[in-house]
């Protein structure tokens, strides 16, 4: 057991770090409940203007649609991405040989070029396929990412080979081993990956802004950008929008953190 002093130090450290981390969230919350002019004056106490801010937000912007679009896009993208990348990462590691390692190294370069440079060629590609304004064009570039493949590749390294061998003797096909053995065992990795992919999908801004041009496809980050664009910015309303935009990722994280931090210790035998 830890000594009292050490324990105190540890809690103090974590508490300070946590407070620093959530301060902006607190600021956002306060701002969302205050009038624009108070926000700009730096008021740090919750106010009573929340309802008014909310009313002007929904009068100005289609909040429901943006939330729904963001949820749907992020959800579908997360599921597809996890499926494609985890099976590839598994393939790269479990069946690794010289050829696959080389391919993997080449793949890694795909994440190393700034997006601003490939955006135009990418747009040209999708427009020549008549796919502008489609969900597919929005999603395809983010389904398979070297980053996620690498994450699963690195995680597969701790997946015991005996399990695979045992399953093969039991007559399971290679695909079945992946779905029935790897998939449930690596719950913590999936949960962590899910958080990250969901967050990235949720916050994605530049590409959807260019490829999805109809009003119907507005997402939360676009909505927030709209609140910022006028000659005068209503800071109370803006911060309420930002606050609403932040909450879902926080909830997803809070729900998943148990699975990836206290998940399945001991399940791998």
């Amino acid at each position: 057991m830890m000594s009292k002093g050490k324990k105190f130090f540890m809690y103090a450290f974590l508490t300070i770090f946590s407070l620093l981390s959530i301060f902006p969230l607190y600021y956002m919350f306060c701002a969302a409940t205050n009038k624009s002019i108070d926000v700009i004056a730096g008021k740090l106490i919750p106010g009573t203007y929340l309802i008014e801010n909310y009313k002007s937000l929904i009068a100005n912007q289609n909040l429901g649609l943006a939330l729904w679009n963001s949820f749907r896009n992020s959800f579908i993208l997360t599921v597809l991405c996890l499926l494609v990348c985890s099976i590839a990462g598994y393939g790269f590691e479990i069946y690794h040989d010289k050829g696959k390692d080389a391919v993997f190294t080449v793949l890694l370069t795909a994440m190393m070029i700034p997006f601003a440079a490939v955006m135009i060629p990418m747009f040209r590609m999708f427009s020549s396929l008549n796919m502008v304004n489609t969900m597919a064009a929005f999603m395809l570039p983010s389904i398979s990412t070297p980053f996620m493949i690498m994450m699963f590749r690195q995680a597969s390294r701790s997946f015991p080979h005996d399990i695979i061998e045992a399953a093969r003797i039991d007559g399971l096909s290679e695909l079945a081993i992946f779905f029935r053995m790897f998939f449930p065992t690596m719950r913590s990795t999936y949960a962590a990956a899910m958080t990250i992919v969901f967050m990235n999908a949720w916050n994605n801004y530049l590409w959807p802004k260019v490829i999805l041009m109809t009003n119907e496809s507005i997402t939360m980050p676009m909505l927030v950008a709209n609140l910022l664009g006028g000659y005068t910015v209503d800071y109370g309303m803006l911060m309420l929008g930002v606050f609403i935009c932040t909450i879902p990722t926080a909830i997803v994280f809070f729900c998943l953190q148990k699975s990836f931090a206290e998940g399945i210790t001991g399940a791998v035998k």
Binding site: G91, V118, P121, L140, S144, T145
Partner: peptide, 20 residues
């Protein structure tokens, strides 16, 4: 193994390497 990583590799080739 190659079959497992084909979908991901093809997608990356199409949406990343081609624009690159």
């Amino acid at each position: 193994g190659w079959v497992f990583l084909t979908p991901a590799v093809l997608l990356i080739c199409w949406t990343s390497f081609y624009p690159m």
